[in-house]
Design a protein around this nucleic acid. Sequence first.
DNA 1: CTGAAAGCGCTTACAG
DNA 2: CTGAAAGCGCTTACAG
Lengths: 341, 341
Amino acid sequence: MQGEPVRSGRGRPTMKDVATRAGVALKTVSRVVNDEPGVTPETANRVRTAINELGFRRNDSARLLRKGQTASIGLIMEDIGDPFYSALSRAVEDVAHWNGSLLFTGSSDEDPQREQELVLALCARRVDGLIVIPASGDHRYLLPEIAAGVASVFVDRPAGMIDADAVLADNVGGTRAGVTHMIRQGHRRIGFIGDNPQIYTAAQRHRGYLEAMTGAGLAIDPSWVCMAKPTPDGIRDALSRMLAGPSPVTALFSGNNRITVRALREIAASGERIALVGFDDFELADLLSPGVTVVAQNPAEMGRRATELLFGRLAGMRGPAQYVELGTKLIVRGSGEIPPA
Amino acid sequence: MQGEPVRSGRGRPTMKDVATRAGVALKTVSRVVNDEPGVTPETANRVRTAINELGFRRNDSARLLRKGQTASIGLIMEDIGDPFYSALSRAVEDVAHWNGSLLFTGSSDEDPQREQELVLALCARRVDGLIVIPASGDHRYLLPEIAAGVASVFVDRPAGMIDADAVLADNVGGTRAGVTHMIRQGHRRIGFIGDNPQIYTAAQRHRGYLEAMTGAGLAIDPSWVCMAKPTPDGIRDALSRMLAGPSPVTALFSGNNRITVRALREIAASGERIALVGFDDFELADLLSPGVTVVAQNPAEMGRRATELLFGRLAGMRGPAQYVELGTKLIVRGSGEIPPA
DNA sequence: CTGAAAGCGCTTACAG
DNA sequence: CTGAAAGCGCTTACAG
């Protein structure tokens, strides 16, 4: 951990140090480091020797300050530990890397306050652009930043109270397809476990459920629907309410990957046998028995499209806010094809 | 996307602009922005008004350049899309946030070249420190950076050819425990599917397997062991070789989460019934039937310990390189308790 | 309490 | 081909 200092003062050697050692001007070092023309091979060699002897590495932060950009973008999501977001992150990183940018990542934990802190901290670092999976419902705090030139694209959920680019999944249509699939299997009493209705995707998927049920002329008992933060306890209670009443459900639609997993766990523990379709695909869904039928979205594709849009904006693309909606895919594996009891 | 310029020139307002508007000197603006004492409330108010009118936000990149640090750290791993690394990332992020640092993340895809590029790009940005899950076996390229003061801690695998802090799991002991567990169930012919033996963890776990078998006085048929990059095809072939020979295995140890999942898929497809213990826990391991017995490490704990060590170094902690070894936990769920045929 | 000057490590714009 | 000066947006060190 202890290093021998490579120059008199503390800290790292700078172009100035290299220049002194090579007996040239600062600007000449800059030319060599940046492969600019107009340096004799002999001079260039002297500079390169000095660079190696001193262990010089250009300070890109200083460079970028002068150039007025940072060659970095920020990604704010709910939780990078969640497989859905980590798959999305990877796609964002790849496109950023492709465009010569480094990536800051931050998790908001679905807390609007933390989202705003992270976003503004990144703006203060002057990231070139921002990919945001919003926790907040009000992004007016971003308006001055956008006006100042920070490109930003929202993913998974649209921005709140401002008009901005967004890449979304077809939440309503996907859910409608999943619920309709179970209706076609003969189910009439279908439950829905979603998330906090403040969350855009939760509300949209709930709407898809309502549309499918209403469209099929099916009434919905209030006890069949749970829209709340999906804690294990909450899901257990919701399930037992759905199954206990005078008109128990025979099928369940779960609103996202975490809910699906928790519901599976509860269903397995309860010993009940009901049909299940979940929004979001997840690893091993095919290996469970029965395999879990899901409405899959493609997180990598969402991340990729959003980041390409971001770099398009950074490259000068103008025009009104774009809304990209990506389709979903019903993947039939068994759990959604269990017939009504 | 189009914003009205808030000052004459293009770009964002600076402290200088604020100073001009408030009719004070630059330094006074700096004082107000940084809550430094020695400004009359009245002056401060004038400055704050100007800040709001102009939409000024301090440029932290410029600030940190002057201060000589960047309040950011970098995390280089194999693939942020992998749940193991994403869980680790989240822990790193939390500790970084706790310490007022932002986090750069980058995926090396197990490519030493890309690892080096990413690491050096981050060093050029002058990150304060680096958490590295190495792909490379030779980290001498980092020596000048470390000498220049970049703190660095290695996780999951030690640094190659240099002496540096590392947080590792007990790969040998964990694997030994897992294999021994199956030996105790009566298995004598146990297969091992690992990864490329160049990878530290792969080699260590292989060693644990050898120790357990040898320790129990069991001979190992060469066809039982596969040490190669775990492609789906490679795993299928390895499995059929293990099961086809004159002395087919009755049990299998799989060297990491991805191998386990792929092996499960192949075993399910083949219809064979063999015991399985895997290194690494994974979501839903308990919901499969049988549940999957695993040797669990704790990625979040690894990330947390490594990052705490990193910030300890940044806070001035001296002394020789530290090696932290974290224990593993055998989690019994059923697949490892299948008796020999 | 307030400010003018120098400097962080680079690049830009210009001169020789 | 090479370099001296100014500037990116801030903070530090010092003076009044």
